[in-house]
């Protein structure tokens, strides 16, 4: 059965890698954001920890990369596959449902980690951001928990989208404001307090915050912020419950 998950993941990954739109939104766009933000703000010292702009932006945009690789990529592809009857046809075969879900989620997690790695390498070699050695467990664990959480949320959100065309705008409409208030694009200390409080409820802030803590030169130890992981875990549970109760395999637009 584990072999079947790997089999499914292998073909889902192949399909992802060959999709130009998926490559743009999950890999090219986060790189563009990284280059633009670091270029504009240069090496100013910013943020609550008063670190170099690049040290601030690299972990924040790494969070965006994780979300792009898991959430954005997943919502768009499974909505399209459901509406095209691809999921329904797969379910007409003996393959168990959980294999299809696990295989696709595995791809999303692998892609998320790969996108994050690319962003970190660009940060290291183009902008001289120090890669944390001591806190590496914190970076990896936070990224994995984040990717799993956003996979669950991706499956949950897909149940609310009725057509493949609506998936991309819907995902961006949800994520862009969250990126802005969660300190991914701009340090959120410059936001009004109430907006900071709103951001604290949502998972983006906790993924970005967790990664940023691990990257902070002042951090010692393994760099894990358990409270951030806890909030991510809660969101994962909420997403999982919605997905388990509402996810369908057959097209919804056609049947109304």
């Amino acid at each position: 059965m584990i072999g079947l998950v790997a089999h499914q993941a292998r073909f889902d990954l192949l399909s992802f890698v060959r999709n130009r739109q998926a490559r743009f939104f999950t890999l090219v766009l986060p790189i563009l954001f990284l280059v633009i933000f670091v270029s504009v703000f240069g090496n100013d010292r910013i943020g609550p920890q008063h670190v170099k702009a690049s040290t601030y932006y690299v972990p924040g945009l790494a969070a965006l990369g994780v979300i792009a690789g898991s959430f954005v990529n997943l919502v768009i592809s499974i909505t399209a596959q459901r509406e095209a009857g691809i999921l329904k046809r797969r379910r007409s075969t003996p393959v168990p449902a959980w294999v299809l879900i696990a295989g696709r989620a595995l791809v999303a997690i692998v892609v998320a980690l790969a996108v994050m790695t690319v962003l970190l390498l660009i940060g290291r070699f183009a902008y001289g951001v120090r890669l944390p050695a001591e806190t590496l467990p914190g970076v990896v664990l936070t990224a994995i928990v984040g990717a799993v959480t956003f996979c669950c949320l991706g499956y949950a959100l897909s149940t609310a989208i009725r057509s493949a065309d609506a998936a991309q705008p819907m995902v961006q409409a949800i994520m862009l404001p969250l990126y802005f208030i969660s300190g991914v694009f701009i340090p959120n200390v410059s936001l009004p307090h109430w907006l900071q409080d709103v951001a604290k409820v949502f998972p983006v802030q906790h993924l970005a915050g967790g990664l940023r803590h691990a990257f902070d030169p002042a951090t010692h130890g393994v760099g894990i912020v358990w409270s951030d992981l806890g909030v991510l875990g809660l969101w994962a549970a909420v997403g999982l419950v919605i997905a388990l109760t509402r996810f369908v395999w057959t097209p919804v637009a056609a049947t109304g």
Binding site: L14, F16, Q81, G85, K88, R89, S92, V95
Partner: peptide, 20 residues
């Protein structure tokens, strides 16, 4: 699954797997 192993289905409306 054991039953589905013995049945083949061509749906009325389904598009092929993409990128394969």
């Amino acid at each position: 699954g054991a039953w589905r192993d013995r049945v083949g289905v061509v749906l009325q409306e389904s598009q092929p797997e993409t990128g394969l």
